[in-house]
Amino acid sequence: MKSTWLLWMTTICLAALITGISAAQETEATTETVATDETESPPDTLMVVIPDEMVFAAPALVTTVGRADGTIVHVICRRAGIDSELIEEVQREDLDGIGTLVVAMGGSTKGLGAAGVDADTEVERGEEVLAMASVADVPILGVHVGGTPRRGELSDEFCEVVAEAADALIVKAGGNEDGFFTEIAERRDIPLIEVGTNAEAIEALADLFGVAEDQ
């Protein structure tokens, strides 16, 4: 009987001790602080001067490599006053009469799932579309508006494929914090426009397409 009571008391003491240590750790950790939140202003944007001769022409064909953000980029184009159309599965004939191929960069697991393709197949498809545009002499503009969530293992492969083929890049600053796009743009000597917000992306697109400000 005594040994049973002793066992109970030991168990209770141990439980109390573990709870106490856990609570102490909790208190200690909660005093720590970390950075950035959504109430802060976006980072300062870096506007790269685009050569005068580099004006992208409308109509634009908007597509994606990675199945992400195509509709958003299409809406941004429309708000910039650019005559544009969104086609996810671009065929060679879709490029006829097109002034610019605007490619939304970044991966979406849900988008890939919706299309019923895996990442490798999407990379291959993307490379084919970019090659078709190159052969058809259609300028390519890579656009990355997804910020940090559209970077990482899945997205980077798609971003790289597009950035390596593009004639210019528009990238939200949050998606280029590690200089991923800057490195490619500098190495390939292509213009990179880094924007802080979608509003700036609209402005940048309007500038690139030479759309009058009053539109």
Partner: peptide
Amino acid sequence: PGFEINLEPSPLN
């Protein structure tokens, strides 16, 4: 300012 949100398509499968 600073509000970040993404858009995902509803998967068919």
